[in-house]
Nucleic acid binder design. Structure first.
Lengths: 224, 224, 224, 224
DNA sequence: TATGAATGAGTATTCATTCAT
DNA sequence: GATGAATGAATACTCATTCAT
């Protein structure tokens, strides 16, 4: 079976079922504990059928991971209508960041795990991280240019560190069970982030608006 | 072999060899890929001998992990002779923090992985994290009391987030190959940390306040 | 492979081959010495295939034993056309009894052995024994009602003892190599059995009593 | 260690401890499940020590079995003062027979099991059985000579069958949990035995004694 | 395409036995 | 003699993958 491309409607459905079943399985079960039989059972197909569509568990996981990463890319995009207030924009970005990582926490962990064994997964992971890093660095650079953030900070390294703070918190919060609510977490992450980059206090910028977060409600288009 | 307690010098050496070999193996190989026979070969004993000292791979890993966690506890203690300057003390703490996690990055990742499957490992991991969180929260609280840090920050949550930033950076830096040198990393982490908590710049503060140095004297063994 | 039900003809054949091979192996080899690989080799399948149909050696043995017990149940039924003469009927029953136990002597011994370790086997064994005990007790009770046997004998206990005599003799005869021929054995067992229950000699009784033959008609399918 | 004969007092004690521990273990545990380590633990010696006294588990079991068989030989001897009444003498013999087999039921079963694998054990078992068979055949022959039992019965085969009845009942009674008390069992076994060999009813012999069993109370010296 | 039976490499684990101390 | 650490042969079992139907 060399031609893996699906030809018929029926085949497309089977493939989709296997992918969905695989994603479910990888979310619930540690990587090595995921059995192809489990996936097939969930998908309602026989074991032999799996190999019509995938060469191995690795290939299946690769596709699942790529799909997840694609979703995270999409989710990370701050939509149009972002307020001008930098603080509100950072908050909006942090909320998206936290949600994106929270939604796929298990699978990202698994991807990290798989990355230690397979080069291709490591590359996928780096790609994923790079998107967030670039976005963060870009936002910081813009603030620096506007004279709103400490200009001596290295944008890339700073974005890695502060982005890592958010990403890591998503893990601690969801996987390790640290108790807090999203609003509290986002607010604090944003304050720390703002303080860390020396963001000129909103008091100067938004003198008349005591509630930056209310402005954030209609926010977005791009990260900080 | 029900009695697992080692009775002779020879036995103690063999056990130590197995532990050392296990640690090596767990550092180099993904958890599920570690074979008991690999460990035995490294330790220079037959595989039957393994079961004289451990019941399973899990038990071996448990001991290895406990040892690593113990080392990290020890390494996280900021020793005496630290300068009284809060900024310098944060930097010292961050350096220790980064080194502690860097040195055992692989094993901690593995512990996280193992924690998803075994409750006991999850508990060990929480203990480990808690020590660092407490230390961080305590340091922040002291600075707040001294009027040197933003008093409105929740100490625990802030410590989790900023500690996570350091911990996560250790991972990105070492495991994912982000290029930078330790000094640059520590300096930046410290600046971000200090900015995040609103640490009053030393130059301004230290002049008129004799407090920091005297306070530092009684806090010499604790991080920020 | 959770679904153990066989779906195809091929599967049914393989399963049957494993059962047959297992029965052979258990007949030739002490229980603990039976290797799953031996069974697979006899059945001409790889050892992986074994686990498609059975979870363990115990499960295989359970099915083999159940089959044997089923056969013994069937073989113990004294068919129609048995003479009405009680003595002749006891003889017929003893012959069947002896043959049934002789044919499966090894497997029954093995079942006894297995029963010391596994509760389910003990239950199977008790069931098997109970069938023969009931049949014997029932036959005796009928003879007692007809005034042909000592009415003071406890039917159940007597059946256990005399049945045990036959069962045990099958073992001594076949497994321990006591030399004699079946006819001699059956004749003697029958004389002892008849004497033990005080069976009224047929010559004396049958003449004036039309009962035995009529009674035999309704007891044609039951042993003594 | 070629010389296995024990030289010192200490050695004799250790050996005895191992034998006792082995007997206990073999009584409680199926043959293959008996671990040499168990035996050593019970005996309070280290594993290595076992091999100072025995070559293998088989050798140990051989000695244990020989000791048990020796005891059963001894126990089977009906002591002096046996009453002349044949019925009482049969009862006394049956009681001894039942007790001897009951006391060592588990070990005899194990010996049977071991006999299927090792020739030497089979021989030991045959020896044991032979003693009881001889004794039974001899008793029957005597009764036949005295005109008290059916002279047409083959003494050896009859003794095997009736002896088997007792032996087998001991097993069913003790190992399989058939409920009854010893007195009931012995009385019934004796009645069946007596009836089976056509023993001339006591009424002829002990006219004035309506309670044969009371005479049996002071019985014994030899079997029937 | 789908099925599910067959395969066998790979791994953990047990335990009798040996041997240095 | 006694100890207990070391050995490794023997075996059960799993599961990804192949293949005939």
């Amino acid at each position: 079976m060399i031609v893996r491309s699906v030809r018929t409607e029926r085949g497309r459905k089977t493939r989709a079922a296997l992918l969905a079943a695989g994603r479910q399985a990888f979310e619930e079960t540690p990587y090595d504990a995921v059995r192809i039989d489990d996936v097939c059972t969930r998908a309602g197909v026989s074991h032999g059928t799996f190999y019509t569509y995938f060469d191995s568990k690795e290939e299946l996981f690769g596709e699942v991971a790529a799909a997840v990463v694609g979703e995270m890319f999409a989710a990370s995009v701050v939509g149009p209508g972002v307020p001008g207030d930098p603080h509100a924009r950072i908050e909006a970005a942090n909320r998206l960041y936290l949600r994106a990582w929270s939604a796929n926490s298990r699978l990202v962990r698994m991807l990290e795990q798989a990355a230690t064994a397979e080069q291709s997964f490591a590359a996928l992971l780096l790609d994923l991280r790079e998107v967030f890093v670039r976005r963060g660095a870009e936002g910081l650079r813009r603030l620096q240019e506007q004279g709103l953030a400490d200009p001596s900070l290295d944008p890339r390294l700073t974005a890695i560190m502060l982005g890592g703070m958010v990403e890591h918190f998503a893990h601690v919060w969801l996987d390790l069970g640290e108790h807090t609510d999203e609003q509290t977490a986002v607010t604090l992450l944003t304050r720390l982030w703002a303080g860390a980059i020396g963001l000129t206090p909103p008091s100067t910028t938004t003198q008349s608006t005591p509630a930056p977060s209310s402005a954030a409600a209609t926010a977005a288009e791009e990260g900080p």
